[in-house]
């Protein structure tokens, strides 16, 4: 009996020791799994790195907008972009009543071109593109890290955790705007853990109301950079509205300087 008791004590005693040591380590040593969460700023930088094009680019874009009670509107456009001097050009190719209209941005100047009047008009970056919910600033390149930073909870910790989106492990985090001239002061991101690609994005108004959910369903790799070629935007404020963006025929060949001029846009529509 004393042997059994001795054995029991040994097992129990060892167990206690292990347990106590384990507690000690947990109190003073950060668990391995907790240190694997990156900072939000790191994630934003990686997102930016993955998607930032350093060359010229052109693509075809199709915007399909469905509005509750108003049917579907499809807008086809050709998009040219040069991030070096913040230039881009959008030329509408369909529907027929918008064909030939365009939007040209060169540095801080942003113009809208109307083929029926053959005139250019200065506009702001939040001008609607072809009457859709897409805005000029959706097509420009603005660094995520310059616009947003990680949001903190009440204890001062960054709001980031791990989660699963469908079957994909993701980082789930919240960011808030650093500057005033962004549409959405608060966003929540679901970003793939393996590749740091944005899979889902929720955008909130100043009052904290969920306004829009975006799904980036498909990416393609061009010049070692990822470009989301299929996105879905769901209007959370007015149910039934959604916009699908499909990007195709992506090229990263150097573009002629003359493309980013008013004359080019005018000549295209002749």
């Amino acid at each position: 009996m004393s042997n059994k008791m001795s054995n029991t004590w040994s097992i129990t005693g060892r167990g206690c020791i292990v347990f106590t040591v384990g507690l000690f380590f947990m109190a003073f040593v950060k668990p391995v799994w907790a240190s694997q969460l990156p900072s939000i700023d790191e994630v934003l930088k990686k997102i930016q790195y993955n998607t930032e094009l350093t060359t010229d680019a052109s693509a075809k874009v199709v915007l399909t907008q469905q509005k509750s009670g108003q049917g579907t509107k499809v807008v086809d456009m050709v998009y040219y972009r040069r991030d070096a001097d913040k230039s881009f050009l959008i030329v509408i190719t369909a529907p027929e009543n918008e064909k030939g209209n365009g939007y040209l941005r060169v540095e801080d100047n942003f113009w809208m071109y109307r083929i029926n009047t053959r005139t250019f008009q200065h506009i702001n970056r939040d001008e609607s593109i072809a009457g859709t919910d897409a805005k000029g600033d959706d097509f420009e390149d603005r660094k995520l890290t310059e616009l947003y930073q990680g949001a903190l909870d009440s204890s001062g910790k960054e709001i980031i955790s791990e989660a699963v989106l469908g079957k994909i492990p993701v980082y789930l985090f919240e960011i808030k705007a650093k500057v005033r001239d962004v549409d959405y002061p608060k966003k929540i991101y679901w970003v793939g853990k393996d590749n740091f690609l944005v899979l889902k994005e929720q955008s909130y108004s100043l009052s904290g109301t969920l306004m829009q959910t975006a799904y980036y369903k498909k990416y393609t790799m061009v010049n070692k950079k990822y470009i989301p070629v299929e996105h879905l935007y769901i209007d959370e404020f007015e149910k039934g509205n959604k916009t699908i963006v499909e990007i195709s025929d992506i090229r990263v060949d150097p573009l002629d300087d003359k493309i980013f001029t008013k004359a080019y846009l005018e000549n295209l529509s002749k």
């Binding site: 939040d126 705007a177 005033r180 001239d181 962004v182 549409d183 959405y184 002061p185 955008s203 108004s205 100043l206 009052s207 109301t209 306004m211 404020f237 007015e238």
Partner: peptide, 15 residues
């Protein structure tokens, strides 16, 4: 009534 608009600074707002 729920309303959605951009405030004077261009930020999305709902009320």
């Amino acid at each position: 009534i729920r309303v959605r608009f951009k405030n004077i600074f261009g930020q999305e707002q709902a009320a």
